[in-house]
Design a protein around this nucleic acid. Structure first.
Length: 478
RNA sequence: CGGGGUGUAGCGCAGUUGGUAGCGCGCUUGGUUCGGGACCAAGAGGCCGGGAGUUCAAGUCUCCCCACUCCGACCA
C-alpha cells in the first residue's frame, strides 16, 4: 500500500473521478441507493451536513425578514400551465399522480418540481394592498424532477432544497432582493463551505423558465468542471399577470407586484465533496462538519488512557465544539483511516506517552499536519486549528479556481484550452444564442455566466466576429 | 432517450460441456493484541436483480422487464 494512500476502498480521483465521487458518497456513509432510480437515501451523516447548512441558511433568511411556510406537494395541471415558459421548461421532467385510492382523478396532479405556481395561486388570494407587501416566504422541502441520468447529490430525481419566494411593490425592491439572496448564497459557499464562487448573470438560454433574469454562483470542482451552486431569479410581473395577483398601490391604482425566487439544494453537498475531497475520502469544512473533532485514544487498554481521552472529549463538548470519541476496540490505524474517510476536520490523539508529557496530538485532515498541543490549552487551541483548516480549504479551492480560468480569443483557442486544462474559459460575446449553441456544439461548453466583474478582452465576439456585448465564462458543467 | 458495461452473502468477486453455490473482507462469540487499516478459533449469513420460456434438471441457454454505471443527448 502506498504511503499516502491509506484508504484502499476508495478509487483514486486521478484514475476515475466519477467512481471516486461515488465511492466517497457511499464509503463515507452519506447516501445509500434506494430501489428507485434517482431517489437516494440520505444517511444520518449525510443528512447532518444538510442540517448544518440548513441551520445557517435558515438563520440568514430569517435575519432578512423571511418566514417559513409549507406548500402542498401536488400541483393541478391547470395551475402549472398558467405560465407558458414555465410549463414548457418543466413539463418534460414532471411526474404525475393520476389515481387517488382506486379512483382515476378528473385532473392529473403534478408532483412539484418547484413551487412558483403554488405560491402564486396562494398569493392571488391574500394580497390586496401595498400594505401586504413585501411577501417574503421560504419553504424547506423536497421536489421531484424526472431526470434521465442521475447521480448522488449532483442530480437526483428527488432532492431536498429550500425555495424562497417573494413579492414586492417595485421592480427596484425585487431586484435588490434577488441580488441580496445571491449574496446570501455566496456567503454560505465562501464562508461556511469554503467554496469560492463566481457571481454572474445567466444567459437567455440558461435562465430559469419564466424568469426575466437568473443570477448564479458558479463553483469550480477538483476536476475543473463547473457546478452551479445557487440561483436567484427576478420574475418581473409575468407570473403575477398570469395568476392575477394584484394589489392596490399608494395612489389607489391596481398593480401587479414584482416577484423573485431563489434556491439552494443538497446538490451543494456534491460540491463540497468535489471541491475539498481527496484520495483518502471526504474532507469537510469545519463550520458545517457534523463532527468537528474526533478524539482517538491510543493504547486505550493502558491504565488511565480511556479516562483521560473522555476528559478531553467532555472538555471539548463543554467548549461548544462538535466532538466525538471512539472508544471501540478497533485498532488505531483503523480509526485514523475511518475518520479520514469521513472527512472529520481534526483528530485528537491521546496516549500514555502524551499523558506523561501533558500533551496530545492534533492532526489536521486538510494537510495531514501533526501538532502537539498542551492539554491545558486544548479548548483554546482547537477552535484556532478548526479555523485554520477552514481557511486552508478555502485557500486551496481559491487557488484551483484562479489557476483554471483562461482567456480565449477564438472558438478554436477556447476549445483547445478546455480540452487541455478544463476550467472556465473567458471570452467576449455578442449576446446571440447562435454563438452560444456553436460553442456548445464545437467546444462542448455551455455558458456558465456573464460575471458581474466584467473585463474588456476585445471589441468583437470571437465566435461570429460581430460587436461584443459582454465578457462571458464558458465551461463544462455538472 | 441512443450506445457500452455490470447485477451471485453487507462489500469485492469465483462459479468449467446446464446437475440445487463458494472464496476474501466484513459481521457474531471467545481469547491474544494495541503509537497508522492486528492475529487465532468457532459461528451466522443466499428466491444467484425480477418475470416468462427451453429442459428430466437453469446462477449457467432464450426473451422481456428492472436497477446500477460510463459515454452522448437532455437537464430552472
Amino acid at each position: 500500500m502506498a504511503k499516502d494512500k491509506k484508504v484502499e476502498q476508495i478509487t483514486d480521483m486521478e484514475q476515475d473521478f466519477a467512481q471516486w465521487f461515488t465511492d466517497v458518497c457511499t464509503k463515507a456513509e452519506l447516501v445509500d441507493y434506494s430501489g428507485i432510480k434517482g431517489l437516494f437515501i440520505l444517511r444520518p451523516y449525510g443528512y447532518a451536513i444538510w442540517e448544518n447548512i440548513q441551520k445557517e441558511l435558515d438563520r440568514m433568511f430569517k435575519e432578512g425578514g423571511h418566514e417559513n411556510v409549507s406548500m402542498p406537494m401536488l400541483i393541478p395541471e391547470s395551475l402549472l400551465q398558467k405560465e407558458k415558459d414555465h410549463v414548457e421548461g418543466f413539463a418534460p421532467e414532471c411526474a404525475w399522480v393520476t389515481v387517488g385510492g382506486s379512483e382515476e382523478l378528473p385532473e392529473r396532479l403534478c408532483i412539484r418540481p418547484t413551487s412558483e405556481t403554488l405560491f402564486c395561486d396562494h398569493w392571488s388570494h391574500i394580497v390586496h394592498s401595498w400594505r401586504d407587501l413585501p411577501m417574503k416566504y421560504n419553504q424547506w422541502c423536497s421536489v421531484l424532477r424526472w431526470e434521465k441520468t442521475t447521480r448522488p447529490f449532483l442530480r437526483g430525481r428527488e432532492f431536498l432544497w429550500q425555495e424562497g419566494h417573494t413579492l414586492h411593490e417595485t421592480e427596484a425592491e425585487a431586484r435588490e432582493e434577488t441580488l441580496h439572496q445571491l449574496e446570501v448564497y455566496a456567503d454560505m459557499c465562501e464562508n461556511y463551505l469554503a467554496m469560492p464562487v463566481i457571481r454572474g448573470n445567466k444567459t437567455e438560454k440558461e435562465k430559469f423558465a419564466g424568469a426575466v433574469n437568473t443570477y448564479t454562483i458558479e463553483c469550480m470542482m477538483h476536476d475543473h468542471k463547473a457546478l452551479q451552486s445557487g440561483t436567484s431569479h427576478y420574475f418581473g410581473t409575468g407570473f403575477a399577470e398570469q395568476f392575477n395577483i394584484t394589489f392596490t398601490d399608494r395612489e389607489n391604482k391596481q398593480r401587479y407586484p414584482h416577484q423573485t425566487s431563489w434556491g439552494m439544494s443538497t446538490r451543494i453537498i456534491g460540491g463540497i465533496i468535489m471541491t475539498h475531497g481527496d484520495n483518502n475520502g471526504l474532507v469537510l469544512p469545519p463550520r458545517i462538519a457534523p463532527v468537528q473533532v474526533i478524539v482517538v485514544p491510543v493504547a486505550q487498554h493502558k491504565e488511565g488512557v480511556t479516562e483521560k481521552a473522555t476528559e478531553l472529549y467532555d472538555a471539548l463538548k463543554a467548549a461548544g465544539i462538535r466532538a466525538k470519541i471512539d472508544l471501540s476496540d478497533n485498532s488505531l490505524g483503523w480509526k485514523c483511516a475511518q475518520y479520514e474517510m469521513k472527512g472529520v476536520p481534526l483528530r485528537i490523539e491521546i496516549g500514555p506517552r502524551d499523558i506523561e508529557n501533558g500533551v496530545c496530538m492534533a492532526v489536521r485532515r486538510d494537510n495531514g499536519e501533526k501538532i502537539s498541543v498542551e492539554l491545558s490549552e486544548l479548548t483554546a487551541k482547537v477552535p484556532e486549528l478548526l479555523d485554520a483548516v477552514q481557511q486552508g480549504l478555502f485557500d486551496k479551492a481559491k487557488k484551483n479556481l484562479d489557476e483554471h480560468i483562461f482567456e480565449a480569443h477564438s472558438l478554436e483557442e477556447a476549445k483547445q484550452l478546455q480540452e487541455e486544462n478544463g476550467g472556465f474559459i473567458k471570452t467576449m460575446w455578442c449576446g446571440e444564442l447562435d454563438c452560444e449553441l456553436k460553442m456548445k456544439e464545437q467546444a462542448g461548453m455551455s455558458s456558465r455566466c456573464i460575471p458581474f466583474k466584467q473585463e474588456n478582452l476585445g471589441d468583437t465576439c470571437p465566435i461570429c466576429g460581430k460587436k461584443a456585448k459582454h465578457m462571458i465564462y464558458w465551461g463544462v458543467a455538472y
